[in-house]
Simulated assay, not measured.
Amino acid sequence: MESTRQTSPPGNHSTMTGFILIGFSDVPGLQGFLFGVFLLIYVIILMGNTLIIIITKTDSLLQTPMYFFLGNFSFLEICYVSVTIPRMLRDLCRQNRHISILACAVQMYFFLILGVTECFILTAMAYDRYVAICHPLIYPLIMNYRRCVRLAAACWISGIPVHIGFTYQIFSLPFCGSHQLNHFFCDVPPLVKLACGDTFVTEMLTYVIAVIVVTTPFLLILASYVKIISAILKLPSASGRAKAFSTCSSHLTVVTMFFGSGCLVYLRPKSSHSTGMEKILSLFYTMVIPMFNPIIYCLRNKDVMVALKKFIQKCSNVL
C-alpha cells in the first residue's frame, strides 16, 4: 500500500503530503459489494430529500414554518452526505487512497460545519413544535416568515467561525508517525489518534465544542419536548392528542438517532475508542440516518404523504 510517510526526523511534519484513508481496504473481498450498497444508499438519500424539498416548495398546504424547516433540513442532508460518500465510493474503486492535507482539512471542515448546522436546525424544528403546541394562539405571530428565515440563516452560519479555528487547531498538530488514517473520511477522533506529542488541549477543545454544539442543543430539544408532552397530555380529546403526537414523533425519532450516535463518537473517553466501532457509528450517522430521515418524515406525516401522492400523480399525468 502506498504511503506518504517521509524520511524526515521525528516531530518534523513540514514535508508531510497527506494521509492514506484505510477505509474498508481491510475487507478486500467486499469492495464491490460495499460500493453497490453505499451507492444505492446515496441515491436513496438524494432522491428522498429532493422529493421533500420539491413538495415543501410547491404544495400550498405545506407552506408553514414546520415544512420550511423540513425543506432546509432535507437540503442540509444532501450537502452533509455529499461531503463523505462520493469520496468513499471513489476510494472503493481504486488502490490509491491518498488524500492531500488541504483536501482532508476541507472535508473535515465542511463535515463539522454541516453536522453543527444539523444540530441547530433540529433544535429550531423542536422550538417550532413547542410554539405550535404550547402557544397555538400566537404561533403565527411568533413564527412569521421573516423570523423563520432569520432562524434558519443563524443555524447555517453560526458554526462557521468556531470550526475555522478548530480545523486549524487540528491540522496544526504534528503528525510524525504513520500517515495511514484508519477511517473512511477525515474526522476528528482518527486524526487526533495520529498526532504525536501532547494533544490534551485539542482533546479538551473537542469536548468543549461538542458540549456547546451537541449537548446544549440536545438539552434544549429535551426541554422543549418535556413542555410539549405536558401540553399534549392536557388536551381534552384523544384525537387531538394523537394528531399532536404524530406531528412530533418523526422529529423526535430523528433527534434520538442523530444525537445518540454523535454523542457516542465525540463525547466518549479516549480510552474507550475502538476503530471498528467508530467506523460503524460513523456509517450510522453519515449514511443510515440520512437514508431513513425522508422515510420517517414521509411515512409518519399524513400531510407529506398526501403532498407526495399529489406530486407523483402530477408527474404521471405529464408523462
Results as ranks from 00 to 15, higher is better:
L191A: 03
T216A: 14
F166C: 01
C186R: 04
T215L: 14
P140R: 14
I160W: 12
L252E: 09
R146C: 13
A152N: 09
E203L: 11
H179R: 09
L194H: 09
V211R: 09
S230E: 03
V201F: 13
I164W: 02
H251C: 06
P161I: 02
I142M: 13
L252D: 05
V214Y: 03
Y139W: 14
T167W: 05
I209S: 14
K234Q: 04
L137I: 11
V162E: 09
T215S: 08
S239L: 01
R241K: 15
G159S: 05
P161Q: 06
D187A: 08
G197L: 12
L220D: 05
T253S: 06
L219F: 06
I160G: 08
V255D: 04
V213M: 14
D187I: 03
R150F: 15
C196W: 12
I170G: 00
S230I: 01
I160E: 07
Y145I: 13
T199W: 01
L191M: 09
H179Q: 12
S172R: 07
T199P: 03
P236E: 10
P189A: 11
V149G: 01
M204L: 15
N182G: 08
A210V: 04
L181D: 07
L194D: 08
P217T: 07
G240N: 05
F171D: 07
V254P: 02
I228K: 00
S224T: 01
S230D: 07
F218C: 02
A152W: 03
T199A: 11
H183Q: 02
A231D: 01
V192D: 06
H179A: 12
S158L: 14
G177S: 06
V208G: 03
D187H: 07
A223I: 05
H183F: 15
W156Q: 11
Y207L: 15
C148G: 04
R241L: 05
I164M: 04
V254A: 05
T215A: 11
N182T: 09
P161D: 03
I157S: 09
P174M: 04
P189M: 08
G240W: 11
Y168R: 10
V149W: 12
T202L: 09
L220C: 12
K227W: 00
D198I: 14
D198W: 11
I221F: 01
L173D: 02
F185A: 09
S250C: 03
V208D: 03
L137E: 15
I221H: 04
I232Q: 00
Y139A: 15
N144D: 15
I142H: 08
I228L: 00
H183W: 03
G159M: 00
S178V: 03
A231C: 09
V226I: 15
I170R: 02
C196D: 09
H251G: 04
L205Y: 10
Q180D: 10
F175N: 06
T206G: 13
I138W: 11
S172F: 07
L220A: 06
C196M: 10
C148I: 07
H163I: 11
G177M: 06
C155G: 08
A242Q: 13
K227F: 05
K193Q: 06
L141F: 10
P136K: 13
L191H: 02
S246Y: 02
H163D: 06
V211G: 14
C186K: 12
S237P: 09
R150W: 15
I232N: 02
I170H: 00
A195E: 12
P217I: 10
H183K: 00
P190I: 00
D187N: 10
C148Y: 05
F184S: 06
F171M: 12
